[in-house]
Design a protein around this nucleic acid. Structure first.
Length: 560
RNA sequence: GCACUCGUAGCGCAACUGGAUAGAGCGUCGCCCUCCGACGGCGAAGGCUGUGGGUUCGACUCCCGUCGGGUGCACCA
């Protein structure tokens, strides 16, 4: 039931469409004013009446029914109270019927959304700086899938560049096969760091040569590269599995090496390419941006060149409705440039390209630096969170079965939730104290609420959830019902804004409302006439909370 | 220097795209487990939304200025 739409269709104001009225409808700050409100100030000029008078007139004309039970005018606002019984019946039956599909939609049917996220670099371990793009992208993947879109998750591997020549050179000089085999990517990364601090001019020269060899298909160079690549993927997949993150494509930069020429040709044909200081660039001065470099003065391609080729490929392959790039805001200019270049190329779909920018992560004592060893590895963070969860379980619930599996869900959930709870644009200063905090507005709080609801349900064996003819609804119950009714909008809102934090905050809000209800209202020991609805509310909360957390990639243990 | 971005309670953050009395959490101070799970609940204290103008019936939200933080700006990705 879309109440805003329902109300809007029943309000007639001269010269104002029902769609505009619908968009004006808001939720009053205070529940006792009503459940929905229409501010009438905007109609004042057209109707030549005061907002107060308009609201009063509209209130007088409105005929209440079994959906809207009460209308009142207050300070130029028209306040609506919805029929509690009707709302409760429709929300509870809808959730009971659709279960985990409640809140889903078919609005995206027939549309494809590409999401470029995580995009790991070959031969570099995952650090906490990679967490945001990974969990944001994954959550958006799940949210858009929930809304009926076909989603293509793309891990745009960082697998191209002279650094791989350096890596091979370093390995040839200092590498030890057994050590790399044993310690995997960390050993490889050390070699790379060592190259950057100790390489001689000859080695730099050699590195360029190795990179050229990779490009020209040299067997040995490619074998080494492929080995490093498989070590990296093995390592990151272990983490992706724990985080519940999946991809449909691992086409990285290297994949586009033979797909750039047509783009370059087209740029040249359309007269967009011009020489500047020896390089080939697209001039963007009239759009207030520095030039976009397409080819270096030595003829080699650049980051932007490959991203343009990737955009062409994705459009041709997936015919996307939107193509999202979940990349830190440092890349803001880069994406503005390539989107503009695509526009200049006459690609009308350039408007469907979206840079989903998020804030950067730093440490308490400054920026991370791989070379200085100032890094926090993501896997360590996850492990510490799981350990902490296990410790808390040992204290509070020592007899729990399957402790390790529960601790995994709680610990991983804490890491994901922490990364998704705030607006994505905010910078984050990483601290173990914060991620290890399991109290207050956290994922653990939501999981705990689920465990509590589960526990009640487990004890309700044989009790009915069938609502009686006449419902008596207390304020705490009604707050929960309204929160449950708001879930579909929260999901759509999160999708519109590419902002999973909206779902995370929704989960906390619903948990708070449920906990308040739980404390103020007996469920199992309630009177016969209200027990079914309270049980149904509890079940509905559990269902929706699990869905919301699921959209973020967070699992919910039965007990904890 | 130019561009983008952020600035809200002691702290880290919300605020339904311009609506009514700016909200929760952490921390601080109280209270609540012979009562469905205390990783919980209730209460108190805490604010001139960086600052100065403007637009509007109405501004945390939009515009201009200003101060402070972050990021980016030619052959790295």
């Amino acid at each position: 039931m879309d109440y805003r739409k329902y109300i809007a269709e029943r309000i007639k104001v001269d010269g104002v469409g029902s769609e505009e009225i619908q968009s004006l409808i808001a939720v009053p700050p205070n529940t006792d004013m009503g459940d929905y409100a229409l501010p009438c100030f905007r109609f004042a000029k057209a109707l030549k009446k005061s907002p107060v008078a308009i609201a009063q007139a509209l209130a007088a004309d409105f005929v209440t029914d079994d959906v809207i039970s009460e209308v009142s005018a207050l300070n130029g606002y028209l306040n609506f109270r919805i029929d509690k019984q009707g709302l409760m019946r429709s929300v509870l039956s809808s959730i009971a019927e659709k279960k985990e599909a409640y809140g889903s939609s078919d609005m995206g049917n027939g549309k494809t959304i590409c999401i470029d996220y995580s995009s790991v670099n070959i031969a570099k371990p995952f650090h906490i700086g990679h967490l945001s793009t990974t969990v944001l992208g994954s959550a958006l993947y799940k949210i858009f899938s929930f809304l009926g879109y076909r989603v293509v998750g793309i891990n745009h591997l960082g697998d191209y560049g002279t650094q791989f020549g350096k890596l091979i050179s370093a390995y040839k000089h200092w590498g030890d096969r057994d050590d790399v085999q044993r310690r995997g990517i960390f050993a490889v990364n050390e070699l790379y760091v060592r190259f950057n601090t100790q390489a001689t001019e000859e080695m730099e020269q050699e590195a360029r040569e190795y990179f050229r060899l990779i490009e020209s298909g040299d067997k040995e160079a490619n074998e080494l590269f492929d080995w490093f690549k498989s070590l990296t993927l093995e390592y990151v997949n272990r983490i992706y599995d724990r985080l519940g993150v999946k991809f449909d494509s691992y086409n990285g930069e290297r994949f586009y090496t033979d797909k750039m020429q047509p783009v370059i040709d087209e740029l040249r044909e359309k007269g967009l390419l011009k020489e500047s200081e020896g390089a080939q660039v697209v001039d963007l001065e009239q759009y207030g941006m520095p030039p976009c470099l397409i080819l270096r003065s030595d003829g080699a391609s650049l980051y932007a060149t490959r991203d343009l080729a990737a955009a062409y490929y994705r459009k041709a392959t997936y015919d996307f409705y939107k193509c999202l790039y979940v990349v830190a805001y440092q890349q803001n200019l880069h994406f503005r440039q390539i989107f503009k270049v695509l526009e200049l190329l006459g690609k009308e779909w350039s408007k469907d390209m979206v840079h989903v920018a998020y804030g950067m992560v730093s440490l308490e004592d400054g920026a991370m630096s791989t070379r200085k060893g100032k890094v926090v590895w993501l896997e360590d963070v996850i492990n510490k969170c799981v350990e902490k969860a296990l410790k808390v379980i040992d204290e509070k619930n020592p007899d729990l079965e399957d402790k390790q599996a529960v601790a995994e869900k709680v610990g991983v959930g804490a890491v994901i939730f922490g990364a998704l709870y705030n607006n994505k644009i905010k910078d984050i200063v990483f601290s173990y104290d914060k991620v290890l905090s399991f109290e207050g507005e956290t994922g653990v709080y939501c999981q705990y609420t689920c465990a509590r609801a589960n526990s009640v349900i487990a004890k309700s064996d044989g009790m009915s959830c069938v609502l009686p003819e006449k419902l008596e609804i207390c304020p705490q119950e009604f707050e929960v019902i309204k929160a449950l009714a708001a879930f579909p909008d929260a999901v759509k809102d999160a999708a519109d804004k590419y902002e999973p934090s909206i779902v995370a905050r929704y989960a906390v809000d619903l948990s708070q409302k449920f906990n308040k209800f739980y404390f103020d209202c007996k469920i199992l020991a309630a009177e016969e006439n209200v027990r079914p609805q309270r049980l149904a509310i509890t079940k509905a909360c559990l269902t929706v909370l699990k869905s919301a957390l699921g959209l973020l990639g967070i699992g919910v243990p039965e007990k904890m």
